[in-house]
């Protein structure tokens, strides 16, 4: 099935994306013709068991990985045909990233890490937006610290601020709370949700945690490289139910 956005403008789109790793007997099909749309100003979670292709889908959408067939769009730009230079610029100017861990350069202070994409692009942050972002993530008194002097939750909030500061078209978050305790995780997730609600930011988050997914506006479920279900306005319970249901369908044998 194809996951379509219920009307409204689209920030990122996958059209019939195929992704195959290896060849011959070792061949693994990670994505089998996935089509999906991610609406602007929406917080979408991509869920699925390990090996379902959820991270691959995100990497293809974010221009970190190439697709074998099909196309990926960010806004109106088809990124599957871009070269390294254009992709680099795209990531720098139109996409924000939050990874599970190792988000920050150890040599730079928190403030410098936040400004990094803008610095690379040679731009200055808008002072008002800077203050908004810093205050929202609550890091004003930590700006001069190095990552090694920050807790895991604080580091992840710095990473969020970095993703937000350039007002990218889309922020892709890959298990952003995977390494955090539940309280820090909740802080980061509400912060992400607030940035969508209050600042109209678009976020696509990959996770396998139903609680994390419940912060999103919409959840897309993947299994075996294909989209198998989706859920609007999820709660932890509805997400968990859907996953249990999918497990029965799609997990016949463990190899």
């Amino acid at each position: 099935m194809a996951a379509t956005n219920a009307g409204g403008p689209v920030a990122a789109r996958a059209d019939e994306i195929w992704k195959v790793y290896g060849s011959g007997e070792a061949q693994v099909v990670a994505l089998r013709g996935v089509s999906a749309e991610f609406g602007r100003g929406r917080f979408t979670a991509i869920m699925g068991p390990s090996g379902s292709g959820k991270s691959t889908l995100m990497h293809c959408l974010a221009g970190l990985d190439t697709v074998d067939k099909g196309t990926a769009h960010i806004g109106g730009t088809e990124i599957s045909k871009l070269g390294d230079k254009a992709l680099t610029r795209l990531r720098r100017d139109r996409i924000g990233f939050i990874f599970q861990q190792f988000n920050l350069l150890p040599t730079l202070s928190a403030a410098e890490n936040i400004k990094l994409p803008l610095d690379i692009a040679g731009r200055k942050p808008d002072p008002a937006w800077w203050d908004t972002v810093i205050d929202t993530v609550g890091l004003r008194d930590r700006l001069g610290h190095r990552p090694s002097q920050l807790s895991g939750g604080q580091q992840q909030r710095v990473a969020c601020a970095r993703a937000l500061i350039g007002r990218p078209d889309v922020i892709f978050a890959d298990e952003p709370t995977g390494n955090l305790d539940s309280r820090s995780g909740a802080e980061v997730l509400s912060f992400l949700r607030d940035s969508v609600r209050e600042h109209d930011q678009t976020i696509v988050m990959v996770t396998h945690d139903p609680v994390a997914a419940s912060y999103a506006d919409r959840v897309v479920f993947l299994a075996d490289g294909a989209i198998v279900d989706e859920l609007a306005n999820p709660t932890p319970e509805t997400v968990l139910d859907t996953m249990k249901r999918l497990d029965k369908h799609t997990d016949p044998v463990m190899l």
Binding site: K85, F97, F102, L105, I120
Partner: peptide, 16 residues
Amino acid sequence: TRELGLLRAVGLGRAQ
């Protein structure tokens, strides 16, 4: 390696 990966991901070009 990971740092370089991160830098490239947030938009550092090859020449840079």
